[in-house]
Design a protein around this nucleic acid. Sequence first.
DNA 1: GGGAGTTGAGAGCGCAGCTA
DNA 2: TAGCTGCGCTCTCAACTCCC
Length: 288
Amino acid sequence: MELRDLQIFKCVAHHKSITGAAKELNYVQSNVTARIKQLENELKTPLFNRHKKGVSLSPEGRKMIEYVNKILKDVEELEQVFLDTEIPSGILKIGTVETVRILPTIIASYYKKYPNVDLSLQAGLTEELIKKVMNHELDGAFISGPLKHSILEQYDVYTEKLTLVTSNKTFNIEDFSTTPILVFNQGCGYRSRLEQWLKDEGVLPNRMMEFNILETILNSVALGLGITVVPESAVMHLAVQGKVYCHPLPEKDSCISTIFIRHKDAYLTNSMRSLLKTIVEHKNMSMA
DNA sequence: GGGAGTTGAGAGCGCAGCTA
DNA sequence: TAGCTGCGCTCTCAACTCCC
């Protein structure tokens, strides 16, 4: 078993297609087939389920991919240790939830100082971003906090107020029982906060409608489709135009913090160190 | 027919072992 | 030490099956 085999395995798993992986790796498809077969023979277990329209990881393959991600990440870090120069450079894979309002400021400031670093940004929900950081698929992520996790390091980015958004000027707690609630998919920090509030109030929601785009949720609320909970800053532009109305949440549920997480075991490259420095600088500026 | 994966044959390359 | 040879591995090409 060679490193190249693991890279091929990871690529096939990612593309869910041997042909797709072959294209990306600049191999012919039959070679990828052969390498995967060889890997399966070596491990004496099928790593993929073959379908008419491609392949998918078998239960053993899913087990394997966790190790492969870790091994390839370790190798990448090993190379980084020797390649790491004084000037931050290379690729930083960063995840973020959609509503980090100061992210553009942080990124702009970082790019200005360290133009040799390529930042690859990936949007997602808090829970899925945590998983990707834990699996070393991302170097770090901006998520809704707080978080208690022994293998993740966290850095405070900022705290802001959550607000309940409706299309009506007035709001009563009973409205939850009659109006649909528009939320992100499971794994969103705002959704968890809202669900906790409803649980505390003993309210059974009328209907939860799931979306995965913030703008869609806010525009739907403006059209009277339902109500939602989002950070105040994310909805202020619509509130100013009178398209939606904001209502305060109970004090204990009203604040949500955004944190930056990274894997504790991951090698701290100059690029990452500089990003953490930029985050801390912005936090200090916002508190000043 | 086209897109998916599989299989077999053969070329190219690197390495180890042998010999002069 | 240099050159030759054989072996094993990787890769490509071509032909194949399967299915929509």
